[in-house]
């Protein structure tokens, strides 16, 4: 469906995108994950034909974009990071205008506008000016504007920036609906929880380069631990952590107060082994909890810095 091959773009001496490659199959959702300034938006701009790459290729169904008026553009729906709407116009008028850009007018336009507004839950606000909407509602109209020409691929550039949790959830539900309808989604974000919830595969970008690309499970495999077991002991004094670290699948062990934190590669074999070992040591415990490492940890592990250190 979408092939991105060795894209490169620089602005003066600054390299914004440096050899980014990935492919997205039909109906698949891929997340471009990286901090602000990593090159995600530039990559999306090149895919949408807004920015010309210095080198590399973007193929949509095997075809390269040929000029501004190439009909292949109809296969793409862009949801820009900015609220690209006219506050002075009603939601309906905004959508009517954006539909016309794709030569959709008359009854067809009315139909697709109604469908889009229904999808984003704003059918009853069609006549209200966008300027009166909350940030979350504007984000939903911003999404609706990209759906009018029924594109196969949706490029979503941080579509939930600055919205409240309720609106974010609503947008996610919209995207899950679109995903269920077989749309291909390319989703840029620096929010881990969004990528984890929505994406089938992730491409981690930093400083314009792809530093990892895999499914969520595959990315976790890159980590030295897959889970952290936290055990609150009745008495943690004198515990021999060196012995604990020698147990199979245990990668780390440390004591913080009365809480033992142990990293395990495989929870199903590692956790029982640790608990049995503690019992054999005559230790009792009150509370056991297993915490899964997040993408934040993955990013930290891959780049040595936090995703939000920007």
């Amino acid at each position: 469906m979408l092939e991105v091959k060795s894209l490169r773009k620089s602005y003066g001496s600054k390299v914004a995108v440096d050899g980014v490659s990935f492919t997205v199959g039909k109906g698949e959702t891929i997340g471009l994950l990286g901090p602000n300034g990593a090159g995600k938006t530039t990559t999306v701009s090149m895919i949408a034909g807004l920015t010309r790459q210095d080198s590399g290729d973007v193929l949509i169904d095997g075809r390269r974009l040929q000029g501004d008026t190439d009909p292949v553009k109809r296969k793409i729906g862009l949801v820009p990071q900015d609220l690209a709407l006219y506050d002075e116009l009603s939601a309906g008028d905004n959508l009517q205008f954006f539909a016309a850009l794709y030569d959709i007018s008359g009854s067809k336009a009315k139909q697709v506008i109604a469908e889009a507004l229904t999808l984003v839950g704003l059918a009853d606000r069609a006549k209200d000016k966008v300027g009166t909407f909350s940030g979350g509602m504007k984000r939903r109209v911003n999404l609706a504007a990209a759906l009018l020409h029924d594109p196969d691929i949706l490029l979503l550039d941080e579509p939930t920036v600055g919205v409240d949790p309720q609106s974010r959830n609503a947008i996610f539900e919209n995207l899950e609906t679109l995903k269920a309808r077989g749309k291909t989604l390319v989703y840029t974000t620096h929010y881990m929880e969004e990528a984890e919830r929505l994406c089938d595969r992730l491409v981690v970008i930093d400083h314009g380069k792809v530093i990892a690309g895999d499914t969520l499970r595959g990315l976790y495999r890159l980590l030295p631990v897959t889970n952290i077991l936290e055990i609150e002991l009745d008495d943690a004094s004198g515990l021999d952590l060196a012995l604990l670290r020698e147990l199979p699948n245990v990668t780390s062990a440390e004591i913080s107060g009365s809480v033992l934190k142990a990293g395990v590669r495989d929870l199903s074999t590692g956790a029982p082994g640790i608990l049995q070992w503690l019992t054999a040591q005559g230790r009792t415990y009150q509370h056991v909890v297993s915490e899964r490492p997040s993408l934040e940890t993955v990013f930290l592990s891959l780049t040595g810095r936090s995703l939000r250190d920007v």
């Binding site: 807004l50 501004d68 900015d82």
Partner: peptide, 16 residues
């Protein structure tokens, strides 16, 4: 351009 509207225009199959 500042509000991102120009991106929408450019994403559509319209000539300059």
């Amino acid at each position: 351009r500042q509000r991102g509207l120009w991106k929408r225009f450019r994403a559509a199959p319209l000539s300059r």
